Computed example of a mutant assay.
Amino acid sequence: MLSRCVRGTEELDVGMIEDLYGGDYNWYQVLAEPEDVGHAGVARKRTYLIGAHSGRTEILHDPFELWHAVSSDLREMVRTRPRDYFVAPRHEVEREAARLAARRGKAYRPRRQDLSYLLTDRELDTMRALSKNYQDCYGRKASEDDDLVAFLGDSYSYTKTWSAVSNKIPTFRTSVRSGIMWSFKHRRFMTSKEKLVCMGWPVVQPVWEGMEVPPIPAQVTHLKQFLCKAEPDQCPATHEVEATVNGSDPDP
């Protein structure tokens, strides 16, 4: 193998990588974040280890200088904000609301704009506490900030994980039971596809056209039975799920 590229978080054990590959590679560690490639509205720091085989490769350009040159240009060309990632059409929001309602044993309410009824008591407490804290600090309602997004998986008494200070959507985590990323402006959580957009996946047309790459299919094709107070033939999410399973996508 002439070269290697290892991706991980900032806590990546570089010494372990060097021990694993021995002395055959020269390693260059690049610290990166989404802002380096235009995604300024997302917090997700990463590190890349570039390994060049000492006997079979030749460094033509310093990796650090090259990364700095490319990322500097991209930072000037594109700078997203948290609001830019809420791109899901209404039928996708309805679909995920129905799925969350089923998982949490709550009655699904079709066409409800405010999805706070799907939150747990602890998530509601966190959301309300953050909303009050935002108004106390900034002198306006949290719902008036298009870029205010908060992670509701943390207890407010422990920490505030939100975009109020950094203007970045907090880093996604899998170490907690609740992965709700809440938009105070839209009064709903971020959908699965929107989370993929945050990570640069070309799953919506503006992204894949801007990247000039083929789209990556990302469609919900299976849902457990969900609760709905309305009759099945009156519940729009039911038709949308069936249409998707049958291979067609409902109109937005």
Rank of each mutant, 00 (worst) to 15 (best):
T161A: 12
S163R: 11
S166G: 02
H186S: 05
F151K: 04
G153T: 10
S143V: 02
Y138F: 15
E194R: 04
D145W: 14
S131C: 12
M127L: 09
F172Q: 08
T161E: 06
M127D: 07
G139T: 13
R173K: 02
E144W: 14
L152Q: 05
G139S: 06
M181I: 13
L196N: 10
D147Q: 08
R188A: 00
T126V: 13
R173L: 09
A164M: 06
G200C: 08
M199T: 05
L196Q: 11
V203C: 08
L196W: 04
I169D: 01
L196C: 14
V203A: 03
A142V: 02
M199A: 11
Y138M: 05
W162P: 12
K168A: 03
S183K: 01
F184S: 05
W162Y: 02
T126Y: 06
L148Q: 04
V165L: 07
S175G: 03
A142R: 09
S163V: 13
H186F: 12
N133Q: 01
L130Q: 13
S131M: 10
S178G: 15
A142F: 04
D154T: 15
F151L: 02
A150H: 07
R177L: 05
R128G: 06
P202I: 08
R188G: 09
L196K: 09
L196G: 05
S175W: 04
K132A: 11
L148A: 05
T171C: 10
Y156A: 15
S192G: 11
E194N: 11
M199V: 04
D125M: 01
K195A: 11
S157Y: 01
I169E: 00
E194C: 11
K160S: 14
G153S: 12
T191S: 04
D125G: 03
D154F: 15
T126A: 07
A129W: 06
S192W: 04
E144H: 02
L130F: 13
L148I: 08
T126Q: 02
Q135W: 02
H186G: 00
G139H: 09
V203I: 10
G139M: 10
V204G: 06
V197H: 00
M127R: 15
S131G: 13
D145Y: 15
D146W: 03
D147W: 09
K141I: 01
R177K: 12
S166N: 09
